[in-house]
Design a binder for these strands. Structure first.
Ligand SMILES: [Zn+2]
Ligand SMILES: [Zn+2]
Ligand SMILES: [Zn+2]
Ligand SMILES: [Zn+2]
Lengths: 139, 139
DNA sequence: ACAGTTAATGAAAAAATATGTCAATAAAAA
DNA sequence: TTTTTATTGACATATTTTTTCATTAACTGT
């Protein structure tokens, strides 16, 4: 998602792509490992962007599908730039680097579970964790 | 996990299975969809169990592996009783009834992702949602 | 460019969530 | 029973998130 495209999307729905919103978006684009709100606030405070705006913008981008959060086993919440739609995250437990993996086929599994439980399975929330190539080397 | 077994586990490690701890555990057993701390506090306030104890007991049970927290896409934190080890929940989006499904085989998918990303995939969080038999009938 | 209109921001307050302290209490051990 | 130890709950404190509202900035039409 380029800055221009994002601007267009904001404008389409009568919203303004302000300098603050652009800065928040940029920050997440520049940090593929994702950031907590606290981290984002610390960085963006230097640019005089308020915490309130960060909370609001994160929520905006999240609702639009361009930011999503992951949680590591320790329970930390971090937000990551992402594409809208059904995707999953693969997160490194060591360095928190994350990549998106949009292909998943759980249909066979979902059918199995549907048969066993008699539920209608409509979807899933899935997140992978492991070690990125770098961290595997250094461990 | 029966109450007796849990009591034995607490005692084994020199801890006491008090009435408060039992009440907290019971509450989560009775709510398979899980509860937020706030919900648990509201219910257990009637039995004069303090918020502090609830936080502490939830942490205890979590450390022991009998309670785990789920952080769904809506951002809600809920704790739910579970067995230690690897399981998943299948939750009805209508009535919140949930069943545990411990069998999952994502090995093929994990291998595919590992090849594509060069990550070492160690595990996953997975939660299914859909409709339970009852709700399917009445919709 | 200018005035009118609407949306967004930021500072502060308020609310919600989580943790720490410590005297009183309850359970187990002696 | 008496002593010892773990646990609880009231309260204080800290952290995180949301709300409020006056000010500021961005768009609109002229
Ligand atoms: Zn890594
Ligand atoms: Zn999927
Ligand atoms: Zn149902
Ligand atoms: Zn699994």
């Amino acid at each position: 998602m380029s800055t221009e495209e994002l601007k267009a999307l904001f404008n389409q729905s009568g919203q303004r792509f302000t300098a603050q919103r652009e800065a928040v978006w940029q920050l997440f684009v520049e940090h593929p490992r994702g950031l907590t709100i606290a981290q984002a606030t610390t960085v963006l405070a230097e640019r005089k962007i308020s915490q309130t705006t960060i909370y609001r913008t994160v929520k905006n981008l999240q609702d639009m599908g361009y930011l999503r959060w992951v949680h590591n086993p320790e329970g930390e919440h971090r937000y990551l730039a992402t594409r809208p739609g059904h995707t999953h995250m693969l997160v490194c437990r060591q360095c928190d680097r994350a990549v998106e993996c949009s292909d998943c086929d759980l249909s066979v599994l979902e059918q199995l579970i549907a048969r066993k439980t008699d539920f209608t399975v409509e979807g899933h929330y899935l997140e992978f964790y492991g070690l990125c190539p770098n961290c595997r080397k250094t461990l």
